[in-house]
Amino acid sequence: MARSPAIAIASGKGGTGKTTVAVHLAATLLFRKQAVQYLDCDVEEPNGHLFLKPTIESSASVGIPVPVVDAARCIACGKCAEVCEFNAIAMLKKPLVFPELCHGCGACALVCPVGAIRETPRAIGVVETGRAGSIRFAQGRLNVGEPLAPPLIRAVKTRREPAAVALYDSPPGTSCPVVATVRGADFVVLVTEPTPFGLHDLALAVATLRPMGRPLGVVVNRADDDRRVQDYCQAENLPVLAELPDDRRVAETYARGELIFDRLPDWRGRFETLWARIEERT
């Protein structure tokens, strides 16, 4: 069976409607009786569950491997501290490990000449999987105060079920967590709004994602008569997949955590068209 596509939904600026687009694409696919899986990769602030209201069936701790030094074997040569790029090991009288700084690269264990370092997982968050009706659901929740999102994002993506269309809800911004989410996606939807902030951050996101070689498309949310985003897209040869009109009823529906679909049936066609435009590009 052919592998279903993975679509990443991203945005440079936060709060442009990324999660709204992602959960409604999931609902659209469900309506069309296509297998769909929603994967919330916005592990710092996972919000898709507030709208899809899934039943969580399993939860697994995700850790990164951090070193533990066997004092009996350690010859205090200091090579582990020397090789650590993240300053997570200090060579004092013996090696002292700072697990919270460790990126889990394994350099120390590899370099130790006497095999005194073994690695044990340090939990950084959880991956939860379940179902919202027929929508398959997975999300990562990063422990509050934990700086390393990409390993958890990679763990969420391992829960992907190839038979279903995967929707990756990306974190906002342009740095490493976004890159970790978008890697391996077949298509990237960038959600923006027609404001100077929206346009500026869209351009940053395009600069980040273009070199990754994934096809991109833009959704203009809360569209009004300001056409600068559309003009930018035309100049950059980026397809505008949808213009979702500014509608206070949508903002109020979102505020309550309800699907626009259920409250405003006139909106269903907009997401159907959006999906059709994504599908013809994957």
């Binding site: 993240f86 300053n87 200090a90 060579m91």
Partner: peptide, 15 residues
Amino acid sequence: HAAQGAGIQSAETVA
């Protein structure tokens, strides 16, 4: 200018 763990490195230097 260390990316992280400047204090740890400084302690190492002092030692």
